[in-house]
Design a protein around this nucleic acid. Sequence first.
DNA 1: TTCACAAATGCAACTCATTTGCGTTTATGA
DNA 2: TCATAAACGCAAATGAGTTGCATTTGTGAA
Lengths: 141, 141
Amino acid sequence: MIKTKCKDILRNGQQVVTQSRCDVLCILSKSQHPMSVAELKQTLGKSSPNVVTIYRMLESFLDKGIVRRVPLRSSEALFEFTGFGDHHHISCIECHKIEEVDDCAVSGALKNALKKSNKFASITQHTFELYGVCKECTKKK
Amino acid sequence: MIKTKCKDILRNGQQVVTQSRCDVLCILSKSQHPMSVAELKQTLGKSSPNVVTIYRMLESFLDKGIVRRVPLRSSEALFEFTGFGDHHHISCIECHKIEEVDDCAVSGALKNALKKSNKFASITQHTFELYGVCKECTKKK
DNA sequence: TTCACAAATGCAACTCATTTGCGTTTATGA
DNA sequence: TCATAAACGCAAATGAGTTGCATTTGTGAA
């Protein structure tokens, strides 16, 4: 994802375009896995804005649907760029490697769930996260 | 769920049986929705053990698979009794009401996911959580 | 029933992710 | 170019969850 693209995304989301915001979005859009705030800061390195700024930025991106919060770890939040469409994650319980998996019948499950519910009118969001053991870690044992 | 039943569950899970542990498990097993530590403490009222004790207890229950951690809120962990088998949740983004929904094709999605992955050998756990607007809140608007 | 030991508990202090307040700087669009 | 709203940095606060340690209690063997 090139910088100009990031700027467009920010503008479309009515976001003020600053260097920091471009940098963060750029990193997220290139990342193969959801990232924590700490990881973002580290990747940004010396040119990183204040942690607080990253938090506020992500909050703002979340509002506009530019990023999404992934509930894979209970200790810290992970964020990923939404532009790649819907997919899910398998996380290794040994080495914490994360692999992405695409839709795989979840949309069907969603419709089903709504049909079965008698209290809900709509489903606006969902998370489907898997935990397992990767082949590497399986081999080690 | 009656007290004796809770004791049995604890014993089967090689858990030391104490009053506090019975109380917590009893409350969880009666609850219609996953509960936070704070909520548990409040429900236990005056006879509640120290918060730290509740944390350690739940940690221990998690180990033995007696309870499960539900990632519905990012700010605090929710716990639910596993004895009722597998199901999922829809949480209202307005009023935070939680409804339980049963399996609805998720197991199929799981098999599918594993088949598509080329890095993972097994899936040991999964979460499927839905967010939406309940009928009540829809009406209000 | 008794006894020793491992496990549970309480308390205080700590860690660490995330939030808030506030004064300053910067992007935006008129 | 200028006014204003938003972003930013810093410091301090919050709040969930953890850790160390001394004390109590449940458990299984004698």
